[in-house]
Design a protein around this nucleic acid. Structure first.
Lengths: 232, 232
DNA sequence: CCAAGAAGTGAACCATCGTTCAAACCTTGT
DNA sequence: ACAAGGTTTGAACGATGGTTCACTTCTTGG
């Protein structure tokens, strides 16, 4: 009835859809690779297209704009980081020979694990960490960055609240402390004041950051294994 | 002997030099005004020239490039902030009824005054604080920013060292703590996680930041006036 | 093989801005 | 008044880089 001229010769099929997705993934991979290597500065549309082996115009078959493309790249990369920190925070880092399985990790252990994971991963991939935490970018990307930093802060805030509730930590503005921790760690690792070039061992940095974070949270006891502080 | 054709009719005089300097100052002022209002984004050469009441080309009679112009703008603006914090740190904020004049301020008082001054000034001029601390800018400006943040960090580091020497603070990596404090305060005030829009009073923020900083430094006693913490 | 529609191509387009420049205008000492 | 500079002007230039588009190539069902 409807088919006056019986002709409907093309329809997107599974095979074409698969190919479409594959190209899209290649673009995202190429962009992520460029970002992890040289940051957003080195990641022009032309460069992404070249890296992915397509023409510049083709990028726009898969993403409406550069901003959207990199927002998704950012989202994926940051998700991995957030997941790692979240997992570490809920797992905790056993600090003594206490059977952690029985009672679950203490707030100290959880905060320690979170900070340590945050820092260790950032130090392992500094250029990526800089891109995620600090490098100037498009507003759309900045929006993703806000979510990213917020996710970190929320992980920390949850631990802080627990610690306050059970008396391990003093009352405080947990959101502020959480934000401050993210800022402090970010600054120390990838900010303008980061000491990366010098002969500062990653282990020392991480240890010092964990200690600092525990102090900032108000932990009264230094739990890190053999960090003998001379308190006052 | 030297004057074949006696003619040397123009020489820059004091009057012209004064006018020159005046225009230069007007340009710096105009640029600073734009920066404090809308950040670097709103501060194109054309806008600066318009604000100063000259033609765009004239800017280049006084500054070799936009980068140099804004590097100087940044330097001047940041110098005021650094001076204020330095003064506060060396003065200290009297925290009890102890006669501070006699023995000089304690490390706690000095750190408190520094953090409080940093924070109060930033909250008073948020757009400027953002431009100075965080807004993406030209590499030349970033260079100035590094010095700016370093100056803050050095003020903090000096206090920390003193506190460690006289036993008020635990041994620690003072440069790291100092950098972390700058990062933490910056993040809390103007970073992505800053809570400016909400109904968070500046006084609360500042108080919480001071408390946090003292804790991060390892101060065991909360000295801020009536902040009754329930320690564990 | 064919028509219809999607995907790919890359050169051209365009918008933004910092920067330059030739012409007009000022300032100065004779 | 005049010549020798300096200063001002604002339109034009140039570089960068995201985005578009006319055209070609591919895929699909008949």
């Amino acid at each position: 009835m409807v088919h006056f001229l019986a002709a409907m010769p093309y329809r997107t099929t599974q095979r074409t859809e698969a190919r479409r997705i594959r190209t899209r993934e290649q673009l995202l991979d190429a962009a992520a690779r460029l970002m992890a290597r040289g940051g957003f500065g080195a990641a022009s549309i032309a460069a992404v297209a070249r890296e992915a082996g397509v023409a510049t115009g083709s990028v726009y078959r898969h993403f409406p704009s550069k901003a959207e493309l990199f927002a998704e790249v950012f989202r994926r990369a940051s998700q991995r980081e957030v997941d790692a920190v979240r997992a570490a925070v809920s797992r905790g880092k056993p600090l003594g020979d206490r059977p952690a399985i029985v009672e679950g990790p203490t707030p100290f252990e959880r905060l320690t694990a979170g900070v340590e994971t945050f820092a260790r991963r950032a130090l392992r991939a500094p250029r990526l960490a800089y891109a995620l935490l600090a490098e100037p970018a498009d507003p759309a990307v900045e929006g993703e960055r806000l979510l990213f930093r917020r996710a970190y802060a929320e992980s920390f805030a949850a631990v802080l609240e627990e610690g306050i509730a059970d008396g391990h930590l003093p009352a405080q503005d947990v959101d502020l402390t959480a934000a401050a921790l993210v800022g402090a760690i970010g600054e120390a690792l990838v900010g303008p004041l980061a000491r990366t070039d010098e002969a500062v061992s990653p282990d020392h940095l991480i240890r010092a950051l964990v200690d600092l974070s525990l102090r900032a949270a108000g932990a009264r006891v230094a739990i890190a294994q053999p960090t003998q502080w001379s308190f006052s």
